[in-house]
């Protein structure tokens, strides 16, 4: 059961690692790395769903009869694009945060805001 469904276990473990990194770190870049691990876990889940042992790419040819399912792969292509866009936007925000606060750490930025609020 565990051995034959190892693809699901890999997805679950990666998912948890990603989520843990997002929650446990206050460094914004580490948060984005965690977010990427989290998303990649889902990509793996989808891609492994469509894979059939011994299956080839879905090209119609007399020599092959077993094909992997292409639809989950195409869906994940879309999700990867979304993931890339999210990471790009996230990194752009980190650059702006660094310009405005002089740090990429979320907690330090919050402390800076609190100090500023106390001064005024």
């Amino acid at each position: 059961m565990i051995a034959s469904h190892y693809n699901y276990w890999i997805a679950v473990v990666l998912l948890m690692i990603g989520l843990y990194v997002v929650m446990s770190h206050s460094n914004t870049i580490k948060k984005l790395i965690g977010l990427n691990v989290f998303q990649v876990a889902v990509f793996m889940l989808y891609i492994s769903l469509g894979k059939i042992e011994g299956g080839t790419a879905p090209i119609v040819d007399a020599a092959f009869t077993v094909y992997s399912h292409p639809l989950p792969h195409v869906l994940i292509l879309t999700a990867i694009v979304v993931g890339v866009a999210t990471t790009a936007l996230g990194l752009a925000l980190v650059v702006r945060i660094h310009e405005a606060y002089g740090t990429t750490d979320e907690d330090e930025a919050l402390i800076a805001d609190r100090r500023e609020a106390e001064r005024t």
Partner: peptide, 12 residues
């Protein structure tokens, strides 16, 4: 500048 932090948290 707080808008940047708010946007980043919303993004995550």
């Amino acid at each position: 500048r707080q808008a940047l932090l708010a946007a980043f948290r919303y993004l995550v």
